[in-house]
Simulated scan of single mutants.
Amino acid sequence: MKDFIAAQDRALLERHGLAGFDALWALKLEAVDEPNTERGGWSSVYRLELDERAFYLKRQSNHLTRTLLHPFGEPTFAREFRNIRRYAELHIPALQAAFFAERRVPGERRAILLTRALDGWQDLDHWLADWGALEPSRRTAIVQACGELARCLHEAGQMHGCFYPKHIFLREQGDLFEAQLIDLEKTRPLLLGRRDRIKDIEPLFRRAGHHWGSDELQIFLQSYLGDETSMQRWLHELSQRRRYKATR
């Protein structure tokens, strides 16, 4: 895969001498959390601010995922970057990439993914933490935005795979909310129709269900389905899936 630089970010990165892999790899920054070492290598995230723009710089070494197409593994960022590009092509609201590249050095497979920071956005967990104090109209707008996001995702033939509150980012726009997705590594095509759709949105119901009442779950489904004709069937199947997950 060739190095990628987003057209709207190229001039800024070049001005700061950061338009190449080596410069971004060598950049000294403080990580925003502990490195991920689950896959035998490591992966870290850093915040990068350039002029008035902010990014998250993600670097990894030997942090690989193995699939049928890549039995010997590939950097997890490579898979996430492909999904970011696919979402953009399909017009699914999601985080945006500014730079991606990977390198092989003796004993290492390195990768860098630079994404634009979602400043001004908050994840759904942020809103759920103070859910009871929100005005009913804002709660409704948030739930509707989540349902419309899921509808857009699935109508484009994609399954997110981690449709959790922490991966849904929202921004208030007047009386409405906009929503978009992050963490696209586990995205795959929606192959099994309704079964995959239930599987994808049930984790949101399970995690947000501690805060959302039955009315709000129905508002989500109405926004997701576009009507109410099959809502009870969907609620039943989601409840079945929820009980199944609880007993595992």
Rank of each mutant, 00 (worst) to 15 (best):
T247R: 15
R207H: 13
E74N: 05
R10G: 05
L221H: 03
D175G: 09
Y244G: 12
D22M: 05
Q8N: 12
Q240A: 14
A11R: 07
H211D: 08
E49F: 00
R82Y: 00
L134V: 02
S137K: 10
E216D: 05
D3T: 15
L24S: 03
Y164F: 11
D125R: 12
L191R: 15
E34S: 14
E89W: 02
H167Q: 03
T247S: 14
Y56M: 13
G174Q: 05
M231I: 08
H160V: 04
M159E: 12
L170G: 10
L134I: 05
L12M: 03
I198C: 00
I92K: 02
E148I: 12
R10P: 01
E30R: 12
H167N: 15
W25I: 10
F4Q: 07
G20Q: 13
W25L: 09
L95H: 02
V143E: 13
L225D: 08
G17R: 02
H210I: 03
I201E: 01
C162Y: 06
P71N: 10
I142V: 15
G40F: 08
P106F: 04
V32F: 07
D51K: 02
L114N: 08
G161M: 08
G213F: 14
L128D: 06
H126D: 11
P165R: 06
E185N: 08
H91W: 03
E14W: 08
E155K: 10
L18C: 09
A150C: 11
E102G: 14
K166I: 10
H91F: 08
E34T: 07
P71C: 09
D33T: 07
A54K: 13
L118R: 03
H16Q: 01
T65A: 10
H210A: 06
H16E: 05
K2I: 07
L118E: 02
A101E: 09
A129E: 11
A179R: 09
T67G: 12
Q240G: 14
E202G: 01
L64F: 05
A156M: 01
Q180A: 14
P165N: 02
M231G: 04
I182N: 07
Q60W: 01
G40H: 04
S230D: 15
N62E: 10
G20K: 04
D3P: 15
W25T: 14
P93C: 00
Q173D: 15
G17E: 11
K199P: 01
P93L: 07
L191D: 07
R206N: 06
H211S: 12
W42F: 03
E228V: 13
L113Q: 06
I182F: 04
H63R: 12
R59Y: 01
G193V: 05
A11D: 09
W42L: 02
E185M: 03
H160N: 13
L12A: 00
A111W: 02
H16P: 00
F205A: 04
A11E: 09
G213A: 13
P35V: 11
R10Y: 09
I201P: 06
I5R: 03
V32I: 15
E228F: 06
D175I: 09
T229N: 04
Q60H: 04
L128H: 08
F100S: 02
L69I: 05
A94C: 06
R109Y: 00
H63V: 11
Y46I: 10
L118N: 00
A111G: 13
D9P: 01
W42I: 00
A88Y: 03
I112Y: 01
G41M: 07
E74D: 00
R59A: 05
A11H: 01
W131G: 04
L114V: 07
R233T: 15
L113M: 10
H211V: 06
H91C: 10
